Amino acid sequence: MRVRKSIECWLYGTKPKKFLLLHIQNPKYNFWQPITGGIEAGETGIQAAIREIKEETMLNVQPEFFTFMGTQYVSIDESLAIDKQLFFCRANDKDTSVQISDEHAGYKWVNPKEAAGWLTWPNNKESLVKALTLI
Rank of each mutant, 00 (worst) to 15 (best):
I82Q: 07
T120C: 05
D83V: 01
H104W: 11
S75Q: 12
D102E: 12
G37C: 06
Q85M: 09
G38W: 01
V3N: 11
K108Q: 12
T71Q: 15
E78R: 08
L20Q: 03
Q25L: 11
K54G: 15
K54I: 09
D102V: 01
P16Y: 11
N26F: 02
Q99T: 13
R2F: 10
A48V: 02
E78H: 14
T36L: 12
P112C: 14
L21R: 00
T44E: 04
N92V: 14
G117K: 03
Q72W: 07
K54M: 11
A116N: 09
I46K: 06
V98W: 00
R2C: 00
I35C: 09
E78G: 13
M1R: 04
K130I: 13
A91R: 01
M58Q: 10
I35D: 02
I39S: 05
C89T: 00
L128Q: 10
K108E: 07
C9D: 06
P27I: 00
H23N: 09
P27K: 08
A91H: 01
A131E: 01
N92R: 10
V74L: 04
E52R: 04
A91E: 02
L86Q: 00
E43L: 13
L21G: 04
G37E: 01
T96M: 10
L59N: 01
G13F: 03
I82T: 05
P63A: 04
Y73N: 07
V61C: 10
I76K: 04
C9N: 12
A131Q: 01
F65L: 05
L20V: 05
F65T: 11
I35A: 10
A41Q: 05
G106M: 08
C89I: 02
G37W: 03
L119E: 04
A49H: 08
E56N: 13
V129K: 12
T133G: 01
S75F: 12
A81T: 10
T44I: 14
I76Y: 12
E43W: 03
C89D: 00
K130Y: 13
K18C: 05
G13D: 09
T120G: 04
L11Q: 09
K28C: 11
E56Q: 12
A131H: 02
A81N: 12
W109R: 00
I24R: 15
Q25F: 06
M1C: 07
Y12D: 02
T133Y: 05
P34E: 11
D83T: 09
K125H: 06
E55P: 03
G42C: 03
N60H: 07
Y73Q: 09
D93K: 10
Q99C: 13
T36K: 07
T120R: 10
N92I: 14
F88Q: 03
R51I: 08
T14G: 01
L21S: 01
E52F: 00
G38K: 05
